[in-house]
Simulated assay, not measured.
Amino acid sequence: MSSPNLSDAVPAFKESLGSHYDPSQHSDILLGRFLKARNFDVPLATAMFIKWREWYVQERVDDILQTFTFPELPALREIYPRFQHKTDKQGRMVVYNQFGKLDVSKIFQITTPERMLTYEIRESEKLEKYRFPALSKKAGRNVDKVVLVLDVAGFPFMQFYRIQAVLGKIAENNSNYHPETLGQVLIINAPFIFKAIWKLIINIIPAETAAKCNILGSDYQETLLNLIDAENVPKFFGGTCECPGGCERADVGPWNDGTVKGYPDEFWEGFRKRDLDAAAAAAAAAAGISASDEK
């Protein structure tokens, strides 16, 4: 049996969507991702797409993009380093998560599950509307997938239950509302006990996500460097890159490194500054309260 033809399925999908389809907002590439996520079943893809649009309005995603700030980010990154850093050999953005440095006991002292989810909504929209177009222009073809590198060395696995719900919800949102954007996952420095934890993890993430995961021990570097050029890999992961100020703080790639015309863009790159400004304002307000309490 031949595989479904995307060019044949997209017109039928558009017709099925009716008024939910906006040609100025919904590219054939985007529609194709929803079709692939539902094995080219047009009725199922239609239901998925409409659910996404309803969620988008319900969560007021446009307002999140315009007004939401996350002043907790600097403090959160100290106990949960997570950063975007350059691309792999296929031109896909690489995201590193250093779970081994995650202090589970402090994460919800810094922020709340609800605010973490809102932050992830904002970042996912930034990926769709800003980073993916830059990656595609750089590669000269469509690029709409990311590579995740999850470093679990030293992770307190017995405390995983504390963040299980919020991580599961983030994975669910990405699967339902940003389908077919995950290219590959490398889980590195995985100890023997991780196999037991993995049995819990696969129960809270979509099956298609679990299928893209490659679990590696401390001998991960050959696999990592086969996927990503050494100059694009941080030195502390076995590459040669040493960004000024640290790769974990650089957030550098085609979206802002000056190699793609039209990028960086002031609005999208301004998220970080707005977060830092909000953090500074919150710190100043807290200092003012402390000073008044001492009088």
Rank of each mutant, 00 (worst) to 15 (best):
F271K: 07
D275K: 03
N97T: 07
A37K: 00
F83N: 06
N5D: 15
T240W: 07
L276M: 12
D219Y: 03
P254G: 03
N5F: 04
M158R: 13
I204T: 05
R60P: 00
K261T: 10
Y80M: 10
A282D: 14
W55C: 02
I79M: 13
Y21F: 15
L76W: 03
E59V: 10
R38F: 00
L73R: 14
Q25T: 05
Q109D: 15
I163F: 09
G239Q: 01
K14H: 05
G154Y: 10
N176T: 05
A196Y: 13
D251F: 15
Q90H: 09
L135W: 00
V94K: 03
I188S: 05
A230D: 11
F70T: 01
W255T: 00
I64F: 02
Q221A: 14
Y56D: 12
K106M: 11
A134S: 13
L216T: 00
I64K: 05
Y80N: 11
V95H: 13
R122S: 12
G245R: 06
A9P: 00
C241F: 02
I197E: 07
A165S: 14
S16H: 01
T112N: 08
N214R: 14
P11R: 08
E120T: 11
A279P: 04
K199D: 07
I79A: 02
F49N: 01
Y119R: 05
P191E: 00
Y220G: 02
V104K: 03
Q184F: 13
M48E: 04
L276Q: 14
K235W: 07
F157W: 07
M1C: 09
L200W: 08
A281H: 10
L35S: 05
S7G: 01
D257K: 05
A280P: 01
D28A: 03
T181E: 11
R115G: 02
S19I: 09
L276A: 13
P254Y: 08
A286Y: 04
R122C: 06
E180W: 03
E72H: 08
K126E: 13
S136V: 10
T46K: 11
M48N: 01
Y130L: 09
R274H: 12
K235S: 14
E172M: 14
C247I: 07
D8Y: 04
M158S: 15
W268M: 12
K51W: 00
A286H: 08
K169H: 10
A75T: 12
N189H: 15
I202E: 11
V57D: 15
I170R: 00
A9L: 02
F108V: 10
Q25V: 08
L150Q: 10
F157Q: 15
I193L: 15
L30Q: 13
